[in-house]
Each structure stands twice: as C-alpha cells, then as structure tokens.
Design a protein around this nucleic acid. Sequence first.
DNA 1: AAAGGTAACAACCGCATCTTG
DNA 2: ACAAGATGCGGTTGTTACCTT
Length: 292
Amino acid sequence: MGGSFNEGNSHEIKRGPWTPEEDNLLVHYITCHGEGRWNSLAKSSGLKRTGKSCRLRWLNYLKPDVKRGNLSPHEQLLILELHSKWGNRWSKIACQLPGRTDNEIKNYWRTRVQKQARHLKIDSNSKIFVETLRRFWMPRLFEKIEQNSSSSPSPPPSPPSSPSTSTSTIKTHQNKSFLPQTEQTLMLSSSSSSSSSSQVVENKNPNSSSSIFSSESMAMLSQDSNLKTNPYSDCYHVDNNNFDMGFIHLDMQNRGQGDMSALEFQMAEADWMKNDDLDITFWNMDELHVAF
DNA sequence: AAAGGTAACAACCGCATCTTG
DNA sequence: ACAAGATGCGGTTGTTACCTT
C-alpha cells in the first residue's frame, strides 16, 4: 500500500511541485465530478499523479476554503493551546482553525515553535518548554490580539525605537499556579475594552491543570471580538509605562512550581516581536539565560 | 554581486485505519 | 470474516525565497 511506485514505471508518475496546468486540471475535474475516489480521479483526470498526491494538493492548496497567508495571533494562540492539550494531533487541531490545514499547522509548529526549543536546547515536548510558551509567548500573542481589537488609530506613546534605553519588567506571581485560567477570567463579561496590560488579573483557580482553557473558553477564544482580557495576564505583570518589548527582566524564582524547577529568566533586548504583522520571533536566545 | 545559510512552505512517504466487495 | 484497496495522519524531505556576510 502506501505510495509505492516503482522507478521506471511505464505510467511515469510525476512528482514534485504542481504546475498551474495540473492545478487547473485537478480543479476542473473536481468541479465536475466532486472529490473523493482519489486513485480513480488521478487516472480519469489525465494527471500523471498518484491519488494521494491529488488529494494532498486539493486539500492543502486548491480547495476554495483554504486560507492563505500568515497565521493571525489568534490562530497562533489557538495552536499553542491546542497542541498543549492534544500534542501532534495536527488534523484535530486544524479542525479548530477553519481554513487552515494540518500541514500548515504542522509546518508552523516545526519552523517557529520548535525552533525556539532547539535554541533553548530543551525538548519541545518537555514541561519546561510548554511552560515557557505559556508564560512568555502566549501572553504576548494575547496582548497583540488585544491591541488589534482595540484598533486605536494613534500609535503608542513610546514606540520601541530604542529598546535598549528603556526597561520593562515582567514579574510572575509568586506561589501561584502558572496556568491560569479560569472560566471566570475568560468570561469577558462586559463590552468595556479595558485591556490595560498593567493590570494584574488574579487567578481564580490556581489549581487549574494542564490546559489553560475550558472548552467553553475555547469557544470564546474563537471569537476575536470577545477578547477583552488577557487570560494569561496573571502570569506576568507589565509595567505599562515602560513595556516596549525591549528589555525584559523576568524573575520566576520561588514560584511554588510543583514538579517544575525554579526558573530565572533574564532577557535583555529581547526580540519578542520583530514586526507588526506578528511574525513573532519569540526571543533572542543569545540573550536568554535559563538557570535551574 | 555572489556565496552560503536559514526559514518557510510544499510535497512525499510509510503506516494505521476505514471501507467495500 | 476477510482481503484488498482507499483514505487519512503524522513524520520527513525537498525546494525556493530571503537574509546575511
């Protein structure tokens, strides 16, 4: 089974990138006959491709509802969260992101997320990396979502033009569970858009376990417009006057961390967000020191 | 400007599961 | 119930564009 075609096969199965002509042929065929029966489709359509190749091309690229372009911060946040719950269940995760394919999500994970783990020299499946994501990446994504949703026309008062000259402080709540989230926290009740990043939101349920969100919360998270409060904000405190994604000092000691070792993160000139389109470069590993 | 390195994405492969006759 | 083929999934590799030196 699985994709065995012989070299020198007279059928001359074609591999590699699809040409526009092949795409047109496939789209036209599926438009007329519908998808499915991929092996017979491959033969009937005149494409010199395997059925598997046709299916993959259709599902990952040609299907009309496939969304192209960068993943939004909201989508990135969902991926991080869902992966922490389900692991490498790419297709399951993709089901929660309409228009995104499992392949795309997998690529995102491998090229963006795992990269950070490699740089940290820690296993991307390790607890410590998961916690790192929750403490640093997810809050930043959430903040970005908040910024986007607030749609304020004027730029922030102090642009991060010279990060090295300013200092921001992120402090975790000591003796609290990392993982925040309660449904109340996520119940972004009002329409007030008070998303002050300097505000510290108390964690209502310090014992919440591996997942940040309940299923109800996930449903809410799936609606950008409802995002008013950073559910990760109890992970850290941001001094609004100084926070500029520049110098970041993190003190994570004495956290009562359960099976986690105490961490001390110090990041100077952290390079959290390289640009405004949310192509996040998590942090500059050269400047991140992790001590256990 | 060219070469080398890296990131991002597309596509392939093998295996597991499902479907059908 | 069983076998063969079809489909789906996750891991891996190949290609290309972009960046750095």
